[in-house]
Nucleic acid binder design. Structure first.
Lengths: 122, 122
DNA sequence: TCAGTATATTGACAGTCTTCGATGGATTTG
DNA sequence: CAAATCCATCGAAGACTGTCAATATACTGA
C-alpha cells in the first residue's frame, strides 16, 4: 500500500470522508442471491461433475461420476445432492443404477444470473 | 428423482456403466483456479464493497465503505484485505485515512477467467 | 509530547463445509 | 429367500470462514 503525503487539509478529522452517503447499488438481497449462485459453483468437485454432465448429453451413471473425481462415493453423493437441490441437475433411477443429467435451462439461467451480476461490478 | 423400469439388461452388475472412461476436461488445477476466483466473489460484503469501489472511479475512504455494508470495522478491514491480496483492489494511505480503489485490469481478468470457466461447463 | 482519530491486526468464538466410514434401503440374480 | 450390488443417508471429525471486541499502529493537531 502506497503512502501519499497529506495534500491540502480539505478534510478534517471526525468528518465523514465524502459528504454524500455511499450506498451499494447491489442490495443485500441481490448480493445474497449472487453469493448463493457463486457458492454453488465454487467447489472443484462440483465443477468437475457439472462439466462432465454438461458434456455428456446422455445420462451419466453415478459410478462413472465417482471414477471422474478424486473423492469417495458418499462425498460424490453429497455434491450431487447439492447440485440437484439447486435444480442444476436431475436423475433417473433405473434398477440399481442412478443416471444423472444436467438441467440445461437451469444451468443457462444460472450462468446468465452470474454474468449479469458480475456486469454490475462495473 | 424419477424411477424408470429396467429396460433390457444390456448392463450387468459390477460392470462400469460406460465402457469408456469418463474424465473431466476440467483438470483439478483448472477447477481449483476457477474455484478460487468464484470463492473470492462469493460473499455479499465483498460483492458490495467491490461494486461500490468499481462505481466510484475515484478513491473511496474506508469510513465510507464501513457505512456502506452491514458489518463492523474489523470485518470490513478483513474483507478489504482478501480483495487486496487477490490483487482486485489496492489502496493509498493519506495521513490518517486509507483510500481504496479497484484494479480495473485485475477485475476484468477475473471476470474473463470466470466467463471462460463457465463456458467450459457446456 | 500528548491526546485523539483512522485503520489494521490479533485472538477467540460460533457456524458452516467437506469428507468419509458405517449403515440402510432398494433391487437384482442365483 | 440369500447374497451381492448400487446408491443415499447418517453421524462425527477436522478444516475453514466470518465476525467482532480488544488492542496495536500510525498519524495529526494542539
Amino acid at each position: 500500500m502506497k503512502t501519499l503525503p497529506v495534500l491540502g487539509s480539505e478534510r478534517r478529522r471526525g468528518e465523514r470522508c465524502s459528504g454524500r452517503e455511499i450506498r451499494p447499488r447491489l442490495t443485500p438481497a441481490e448480493a445474497e442471491r449472487l453469493t448463493a449462485d457463486l457458492t454453488l459453483l465454487a467447489h472443484p468437485v462440483r465443477l468437475q461433475l457439472l462439466e462432465v454432465l454438461a458434456r455428456y448429453e446422455g445420462r451419466v451413471c453415478v459410478c462413472d461420476l465417482e471414477a471422474a473425481v478424486p473423492v469417495k462415493q458418499p462425498t460424490v453423493s453429497h455434491h450431487l445432492r447439492l447440485l440437484r437441490e439447486a435444480g442444476l441437475i436431475d436423475c433417473e433411477r433405473q434398477g440399481l443404477w442412478a443416471y444423472y443429467f444436467v438441467n440445461r435451462a437451469a444451468l443457462d439461467h444460472l450462468r446468465e444470473r452470474i454474468a449479469a451480476g458480475l456486469d454490475r461490478l462495473g
